[in-house]
Structure formats: structure tokens, C-alpha cells
Amino acid sequence: MTPGNALRRHAIAKAFHFLCATVTWAGVALLGVLLFHVSYSGFMWLDGQFLSSFPSRFPEKAGLNSALWGTLWLITLTVAFSVPIGVAAAIYLEEYGGKGKLSRLIEVNIANLAGVPSIVYGILGLVVFVRFFGFGRSVLAGSLTMSLLILPVIIIASRESVRAVPGSIRQAAFALGATRWQVVRSHVLPSALPGILTGVILAMSRAIGETAPLIMIGALTYIAFVPNGPMDAFTALPIQIFNWASRPQQEFHQLAAAGIIVLLAVLLLMNAVAVFIRYRTEEGNK
């Protein structure tokens, strides 16, 4: 090996290192550009009037009121449906299912469901909830559709945190003559709870930002009222943003940006809560 060759090889290695670092930081910078662009375009529209007004043909009168309430309704119902079912499914798979063929099938099925495009869930919701069950274009139909969409996320996250509960705890409880459900309720669930909560929050952020399934079930209508019950029609934050962004006028684009600021603020807040829970748990385990 000649020294010249060695020098060249080291130069290549350095260049490669530099390249990898550059693209990585470019990705980080991109997030900055995106956030800056959105804030810059939207911040001047962000005021109390914007949050308290209903949608309007006139940009200066338009606001997010019905969208915010719609999202709140949607997420509350979605969580109420999907969290108990998702956690129960995770517990079944980890604590009861064993390694049989059926468990294996369910497992593969969940992994693949997580990869189904969200618009396909929208079509499912349209046919099953809106039409077949006759829920119409209601909050109920929307949240049931959204529940199916985020169930795989909740199940996968809950399974991971249930699996992380040490086996020695289960053994100790079984050796005291506990039944399986007693072991799960008193020891597995409490220990897994922080991880499950983190997963639930992530799934909720997914549901808050999802747009396509709601468009499919027909949430994109001009809604100038706040839903009063699960059977009412509704709009939601991302739908409103989509609506404004798809109009040609500059002012509506800026409204969309303002809506995005609100949406991202909500998501960021939820992420902060998730990070806080994770941090508390790690501290607790020390």
C-alpha cells in the first residue's frame, strides 16, 4: 500500500463523513425553514378573533372556532373508543396469546394495518360507518374511522411497554396464587402505564393531524356551528387548513398558515407531555 493511496483513502473517508453530516444537518435545517416559513406567513392573522370566529368567505372574518371544537370532539371520542380496545388487544397478545398461529396472524395483521394508507381507512369509514350504520357525516362516524386508523399505533406501543415489564414481577405474583387477570391488573398495567400513555399521546397527535380520512367521510363542509353531540356534523383543524390552502387567494393561504401554527402548537404541547412522562418514568426507575 503506497502512502499516496492511503492519503487518498483517508480523504475519501473524510469527505464521506462530511457528506453524511451535511445531509443530516440539512434535514434539521429544513425543519427550521418550514417552521419559519409558516410562522412568518401566518402570525399576523393569529388573534382572538381568529380563534373565536367561524369560517367565512371573507378572510378577515374567518376563524377556527368550529374547527377547534370539532377537533376536540373528534379526539375525545377517538380516544374513548381506541384506547381501551388498543390496550386490551396489546394485553391479550402479550399476556394471554401465547405463540400460537392465531396470535402470529394477529401480529402480522397489525403490522400491515399500520401501513395501510389513511385514505383507505377513509373509504372504509365512508362505507361502513357513514352509510351502512347510517351515522351520516357525524363526529361519531369520524371518530370511529379515526379509531380504526390509530388502533395499530396504540397496540404496537402498548405491546412494547407491556413487554418491558420484568418477568420476575409476574412470577412473584403468580407464585402468590394470583390469577392471570390479577397479575395484569395489579402489576403489569401499572408498570406499563407510562409507556402506554406515551403511545396514546403519539397516536392522538396522528389523529389530530390526519386529513384524508375525514375528507372521505365528508367532513369538508362549510360548518358555522359548534357540534353539540356525537351525531352532529363537524369540521376539524386540518380540514380547515386544507380548505384555506386549496383556495387561490393569498389571504387564505395566510389563514392556512395561521391555522397550521395553532395545529403545530397543539401537537408540540402533546409531544412535550409525552417527553415529560418518559422523563418522569426514567427518573422513577433510577
Binding site: 412470577q171 412473584a172 405474583a173 403468580f174 407464585a175 402468590l176 396464587g177 395489579s186 401499572p190
Partner: peptide
Amino acid sequence: PVDVRRKIGMVFQKPNPFP
């Protein structure tokens, strides 16, 4: 078996108190 374990208790290799 649940009743068996109530009558015949067990202590494990590593201490495993509940958290």
C-alpha cells in the same frame, strides 16, 4: 394450579419485590 401456589409459596433467585 392457582390454589396450589397459595399453599406452596416461592422465593426467587433475585429479590423481586413489586414496585
